[in-house]
Design a protein around this nucleic acid. Structure first.
Lengths: 218, 218
DNA sequence: TTTCCGACTGATCGACCGGTCAGGTTGGAA
DNA sequence: TTCCAACCTGACCGGTCGATCAGTCGGAAA
């Protein structure tokens, strides 16, 4: 048999096994667990079907390995929130912008996470997804509460609603990126960092650097 | 053969066929197209497997029928935006609240729509989903622009970002409803209409229906 | 050399998939 | 009463699914 999927191994993986992981990630993200067969994965990874089972034991195990990889990747986002030595405002703005960038850079990750979140309640899959998003949102929420205590955020605004608006706005941009252009008067695509700034600005003008108009700044 | 799936028939459907539709909607929403077999549907609908094919021709046809039903249901939301005779502010607020209510009342609809949106780009499925969301967002966006012309919305806020923040915030609430309670200091679940009001308030205090004085806006 | 072990493969399994088919049943028009 | 069309079913089909297995191969250990 093989090592339990719970072990945090990113270590010695055969080149073939690595190809299987990469192919799986893409295919599972695009078509979902049931929409992908081991044959599809093996073919894309240029590996025999039996070899997939040799390395990962079962389809469920392989999927679990992918999800673990995704959760790990998404978890690292938090570091920016804690470690940064700049002001709270900047940290919030950076978080929002980085969150959007991460989504745009690795869409497969987002789709995998979203599918995990769509699993029925009280399943291990769903709980794990909730854990990831809980950690992320809680950190952002705490930052916003901190901001409110500093008086940089109006006292009557709800930090929780603000948190969801930021995260949700980013997600919406990510999902609808392709059709946002036609909402613009000039018909040009919306630049992600510009959007990020607009989002921060409209939600809490106090966070933005005061009188500067929301035009492109270097 | 059967009627083309494109026909807008909500008409004479056998009781059995109706049961199949309902069962399909739930199962497809929960597990996705590939995660559900005709056997599963037939069993849940208490109908023979062959009868499913008799009424809907193929699995793909059945799924298309479900999606059409979903699109129709989601499209009706727009009426509230247009017909209402109340002020623009109220219409925006009502739209946000109604949007959230709709999601909470029929989660299966949301999941089906989300799965449709996760289909690869340039597929008919994906395009149809984009069409629905485009219509909805455009209406909301126009309302907000109208609001901005009236001076009820700061001139330097981006209506598009605001639109996505509202829609995204609602979606986030819907998805994370179960874990939001522990973000509250009192640990109690967040009431949807309360959340809706908070969301509207923080995004643009002027829109808030309450007799809030012209905010400090600083 | 011989032994041994992990990487890897082609052939194959039973189960289940979407879909078909022949035929039974029923209700209303002719 | 006859007839026909629609509703509905159990049995069945070819194909694909996840998974297994016997066995090949190459390199490190003995």
């Amino acid at each position: 048999m093989h090592e339990s999927a719970a072990s945090p191994q990113t270590e010695a993986r055969t080149e073939a096994a690595q190809r299987v992981l990469e192919a799986s990630k893409i295919l599972f993200a695009e078509r979902g667990y049931d929409g992908v067969s081991i044959r599809d994965i093996a073919e894309k990874a240029k590996v025999s079907k039996a070899n997939v089972f040799h390395h990962f034991g079962s389809k469920a195990n392989l999927y679990a390995a992918i999800l673990e990889q995704v959760a790990e990747q998404l978890g690292t986002k938090l570091d920016v929130l804690r470690d940064s030595s700049c002001s709270v405002q900047e940290r919030v703005a950076r978080f929002a912008e980085l969150d959007l960038q991460d989504q745009l850079e690795d869409p497969h990750c987002v789709y995998l996470f979203l599918r995990q979140l769509m699993a029925p309640n009280n399943t291990e899959q769903r709980r794990k997804a909730e854990q990831v998003i809980r950690d992320s949102l809680r950190s952002l929420l705490q930052l916003l509460e901190q901001l409110q205590e500093q008086g940089e955020l109006p006292a009557d605004t709800d930090p929780l609603a603000l948190t969801l608006a930021i995260a949700g706005g980013n997600f919406m941009y990510f999902q609808l990126q392709g059709i946002l252009a036609e909402f613009q008067r000039d018909g040009r695509p919306v630049d992600p960092s510009t959007f990020s700034r607009s989002l921060m600005h409209l939600i809490t003008p106090a966070v933005n650097n005061g009188p500067t108009p929301p035009t492109t700044r270097g």
